[in-house]
Design a protein around this nucleic acid. Structure first.
Lengths: 175, 175
DNA sequence: CAATGTACTTGACATTGTGTAAAGTATGCG
DNA sequence: CGCATACTTTACACAATGTCAAGTACATTG
């Protein structure tokens, strides 16, 4: 929530009140923005493309790459939403919604790994899903890219490797 | 920053102004609190104990366990500090300071793994340090414990496993 | 004992930003 | 024309941080 409604309104060329008429509150604006950006950036299509890969391992890599590619585009908004969700119910719902989508993607990948017998034997499906989820989260991205100053490529390479090591059965590790 | 200075002052049995006399600002209070809590909880000794283990792998496990044990004790403060650091320089310094300590610990572990030839060959020391760091971060803890509802034990077990898989050379994996 | 300093209190006020309310205006449409 | 829609302008309530000035209680010290 690192922005003032007055600035937003001025930048949009409307009065501050117009923002309230349209979105009800600051959080309301944020929630609408999140939805809008995901649509206009085509998140859905990008995600679908990841799952077009025949090999699950390619899907896993693609999922990591998607995070590397997509997160910087939405980072500022995501951070604001992450903050807003602590105090605003609608923001929390929007956040949970997006997280649920991401988790579903993780479940898909891990489930397929399990089905094909290439899930690392030490991991339960549930734990592997959650760990893949957290490994590819915006927070992890922030820690590595923003705070540690990593490049996108370094992030993608390291996370691909980490995700594979955690989730793939040792025999399958070489691709 | 999910608290009001007036409440803090009242709970401490002093006037709101007294807080300003002592700590200068809300962030100042927070920074002082962080230092105080780390000392009174004995973080330094707990960390030292982790590194008393002879085996580096035990140190790695102990480091994960320390996070599992310690993070819940400081979570509320840590979250406030994480938020404060975006707007307050002193808070940012306090945060970076603690992160640097944690990173030093990671460097120690990974460095020793490298020296003993048991660091996973696919990882550079720098990348492994950072990945161990992010894996054991407060943010990751929050995602798993607070948001996903994991138990402490589940967290510790999963992260031990994940850390080992990422950082240990395959041959060394069984301990 | 008087003077001084320390640590705090009380109360008032400036500031910033969100959110609400009310009245007015421009535009388009049936 | 009459009316609805979409917006503007202005004003204000409110919460919370941070500042300021004057006062008080108590302990220390010459």
């Amino acid at each position: 929530m690192n922005f003032r409604l007055e600035d937003v309104a001025r930048a949009a060329g409307v009065s501050r009140q117009a923002v309230y008429l349209h979105f009800g509150s600051k959080s309301g604006l944020l929630v609408a923005l999140v939805t809008f950006v995901d649509e206009s950036e085509g998140l859905h299509e990008l995600a679908a493309r990841v799952f077009e890969h025949e090999s699950v391992v390619d899907q896993l890599d693609g999922f990591v790459d998607l995070q590397a590619e997509y997160t910087p585009r939405i980072y500022a908004i995501a951070r604001a939403l992450d903050q807003a969700r602590r105090v605003d119910e609608a923001a929390a719902a929007a956040w949970n919604n997006r997280m649920e989508d991401r988790k579903t993607a993780c479940r898909g990948i891990v489930g397929r790994l399990k089905d094909q017998g290439v899930l690392h034997p030490e991991w339960s499906v549930e734990d592997a899903v959650e760990l893949l989820f957290v490994l590819t989260s915006i927070r992890t991205w922030e820690d590595l890219i923003v705070d540690a100053g990593w490049s996108k490529d370094r992030y993608a390479a390291a996370l691909r490797r980490a995700a594979r090591q955690i989730v793939l059965a040792p025999a399958q590790r070489r691709n």
